[in-house]
Design a protein around this nucleic acid. Sequence first.
DNA 1: ATGAAAGCGCTAACAA
DNA 2: TTGTTAGCGCTTTCAT
Lengths: 334, 334
Amino acid sequence: MKVTIHDIARLAGVSKSTVSAVLNDNPLIKDETKARVREAMKKLDYRPNELARALARKQTKTIGLIIKEIDNPYFARITSGVYDYANKEGYTVLLGSSELKPLQEQETLNVLLSKKVDGLIISSLKDNGGFSHLLELKRRNVPFVLLDTIDMLPTNGVDVDNVQVGFMAVDFLLQKGHRRIGYLAGPDHSLHSVQRLQGYKMAHNRHGTPVQDAYVVPAGSYIEDGFRAGKTLTEMPATTRPTAVYCFNDQVALGAISSLRKAGIKIPEDMAVVGTDDTPLATAAFPPLTTIHIPIYEIGRRAAALLIKQIQQKENPLNEKIVLEASLVERDSA
Amino acid sequence: MKVTIHDIARLAGVSKSTVSAVLNDNPLIKDETKARVREAMKKLDYRPNELARALARKQTKTIGLIIKEIDNPYFARITSGVYDYANKEGYTVLLGSSELKPLQEQETLNVLLSKKVDGLIISSLKDNGGFSHLLELKRRNVPFVLLDTIDMLPTNGVDVDNVQVGFMAVDFLLQKGHRRIGYLAGPDHSLHSVQRLQGYKMAHNRHGTPVQDAYVVPAGSYIEDGFRAGKTLTEMPATTRPTAVYCFNDQVALGAISSLRKAGIKIPEDMAVVGTDDTPLATAAFPPLTTIHIPIYEIGRRAAALLIKQIQQKENPLNEKIVLEASLVERDSA
DNA sequence: ATGAAAGCGCTAACAA
DNA sequence: TTGTTAGCGCTTTCAT
């Protein structure tokens, strides 16, 4: 039933080692022998058992990717980028998700490690025991790349500058004359969200405008979260309610717009809305969304590239922090 | 550096087999011994090498999932369902995507097979050499579950009835009095899309309304595809242009609406729009989308459940076709 | 240019 | 109740 190098060896009249050598295209093997072996492989429809290879070689040609939410366009894009690059380089990727739960991040990490991935790309949750699991990786010399910028950690990472992102969005709004600006925050444990909030505050300071805590409302990352948070906004008295709102991502923005509209609030006249990510959603929204463009796919690609580079030269650990450019795209919602 | 059962055995003063037995929680081992072994494991921070286990056991506790597009909310939902169920059952899932390319489906399949997954869930492309690769799986006795209904194939599958889905949508439109109805079709090779088209035609027949080939315009599955296809619609003379359009999915519908609106066409007055899937997008769209609800997450879960069931009883191949219910959700776009 | 032998880390009879 | 002995399918020195 299952054919192994042993069978091939017998059929081709050579030894197992020769078959193995052919498998790895070892130049020492005579062409004629190679041909004969390969023919035997064809004939028996031989397929190498990658498990066995991995065990012997001590490398799986597999990388692990841990994201926060499977069901989130941002991570779908990241995943695309990672897959494209990894596959091109002959790596398989094992996808796991913490679904925003620190514990699950840890568990997922353990599973991937026991599957012996050659390295990991991680979108880590903040406050996960102070990133001790990442330090542990470092200690064990497991190559990994982060999808966040964690300054205090001497690790590889690919990301945009999210403080800058938040700043850009809110500065834009302030320049347009808004003085009461809301922030629909991302999920708990999201570093990106707190960094953008930091930018939000920085922009306020820069303009000498006081920050109002009530204007920062926790939302999340899904359309429904935006919808709910938008409702919170509509429930504020019109005279003190924000005249503009910056959202953690386009989905939240879309949800917010939807509940705002339902409440008869006009976008952008009564309330300007700025999103983040610049997903296709942004163009198709009504009104089309002003948003911060983030090169998501590219982040994924670069992360994979960096990881694979790190894997190939495991001896000397890199410490590259790649920071990609974000930019504001003005459309009609603000 | 890397600790194995051998190290544990030495430290605990037992044999490797005993350690292995403890690892598998074999009831024959005395509690006291277990305790001692486990302590040794803690002490050395032992982590079983799943690769080695898999090789010896001939099962990886890993299932493969092949989707069509990573970057598509439909498959994100499916993936969620599969992951949740699989993880709960102690399975890891290896995700691959054909990205709509039949060749890549084949390659992805090969990679997953060489990684020795215990079984597969596949959203297969149509016309892939007449599904010969699936028959091949059958022949090799690899458990798998399809995410499509392929009647001629004696295989496991979980899906809604997509002919029925198309019928439902178009029948609804016809009952509303529309006589010129468009169909924005899905990607090439999408079985779902052709099945829905079949339903589209059935509904027309049922109402004695002739089908106009020009009203069937190829779109795809992304917002941009809908946008482009919508434009095609706007370029038709207003007098012969469809008064309603049924879309392959909500994203396409959203894109279409966006280009229709740009052309000054009012939804639903000038053109009614019906989507498919009932993703959160549908609620947040403007106007909120009338669409066919599909229990996507549930499809994923059930597929995983069926596959795992099939894996556990590999001897007698099942042939279960699970058909879930779809339903029309009326909102404002039609 | 090819083969023999040992081993990767674990499981699985079978003994003891 | 635990240890011994073979593998699982492949790679990798080291001989020849």
